[in-house]
């Protein structure tokens, strides 16, 4: 799940522990979330096993992004619960009560969950390297020197070696998103969440970002990717989840969901985007 593994090692077997593959990394149970009168999530259940890639598809407004944002507690859930690697997110359970965690503890939990935004959200006043070094140093108290070395290694991995000293706005959209991915990886998270990582990019830049994500998938990083790239889903996903109207309509391996959808709504959506 971390980067210490060699990129070439096959998924799941990477740790040499076969049991690892069955471990549930992200567990979403009966999650409801509303904004005012609008109910965006209406009881979502989702289990993601360690080392797996889950791609979430669905029409806009189906609650995909909101679901992703509840997993790292950028949005509080109204009902239900979420755990990552067995740890409840945003709450502490004692008996049959859930106690809200303090912000400090939530921030600590978030360092284990990488998040990549649609519009990158790089810090424009910091250089690429400073963007990557900031969180490991301030949140994980890593020595600056070590964080800088990690940053260089990660930049090389996303194909941006030598760009450490530039400012984000001097880079193309695709390069910025690759920096954002490296920034998320710098914390060595247990799971990576991608919120439409290529939607803000020019078509010719989409490929370079997807290549980086594919490379991560091959190295056994647990990922949940919200996207509209059906081809990417078919190629990389272990599980495809189709959401509509705030619920999971259908899920399964790409061959099942994309090629032989059982639900009418899935079929209707796919016929529009394929």
């Amino acid at each position: 799940m971390t980067l210490s593994k060699s990129p070439a090692s096959p998924k799941g077997a990477a740790d040499g522990t076969a049991g690892e593959t069955d471990r549930v990394m992200v567990d979403v149970r009966g999650v409801h979330k509303g904004f005012g009168p609008l109910e965006v999530l209406r009881g979502v259940d989702l289990r993601v096993r360690a080392g797996e890639v889950t791609v979430v598809l669905g029409p806009s407004g189906s609650g995909k992004s909101t679901l992703l944002r509840t997993i790292n507690h950028l949005e509080k859930v109204d009902r239900g619960w979420i755990s990552v690697d067995g740890e409840l997110i945003g709450y502490r359970r004692s008996g049959d009560k859930l106690y809200e965690l303090k912000e400090k503890e939530v921030l600590r939990q978030r360092t284990r969950i990488g998040f990549v935004f649609q519009d990158f959200n790089l810090f424009p006043h910091l250089t690429v390297e400073e963007n990557l070094v900031e969180a490991p140093v301030s949140a994980l108290r890593r020595p600056r020197k070590e964080a800088r070395e990690t940053a260089r290694r990660l930049l090389e991995r996303v194909g941006l070696a030598g760009r450490a000293g530039t400012y984000p706005r001097q880079l193309s959209g695709g390069q910025q998103q690759r920096v954002a991915i490296a920034r998320a990886l710098a914390l060595e998270p247990k799971v990576l969440l991608f919120d439409e990582p290529t939607s803000a990019l020019d078509p010719e830049l989409v490929g370079e970002v997807l290549d980086v994500i594919k490379d991560l998938a091959r190295s056994g990083t647990t990922m949940i990717v919200v996207t509209h790239e059906i081809g990417f889903a078919r190629e990389v996903a272990d599980t495809v989840v189709f959401m509509d109207g705030g619920v999971v309509v259908e899920q399964g391996p790409p061959s099942a969901v994309l090629d032989n959808p059982r639900q009418e709504r899935t079929r209707a959506f796919l016929s529009k985007v394929l």
Binding site: L74, R108, T111, F115, D119, P124, E134, S138, A184, L187
Partner: peptide, 24 residues
């Protein structure tokens, strides 16, 4: 989005203000 990114990275609150928000 800047605050959200800082929060998603787990950067401590005061540090978010001093290092990310105020300089911008």
């Amino acid at each position: 989005g800047q605050l959200e990114a800082a929060a998603a990275l787990g950067i401590p609150r005061l540090r978010q203000i001093r290092r990310i928000v105020l300089p911008q």
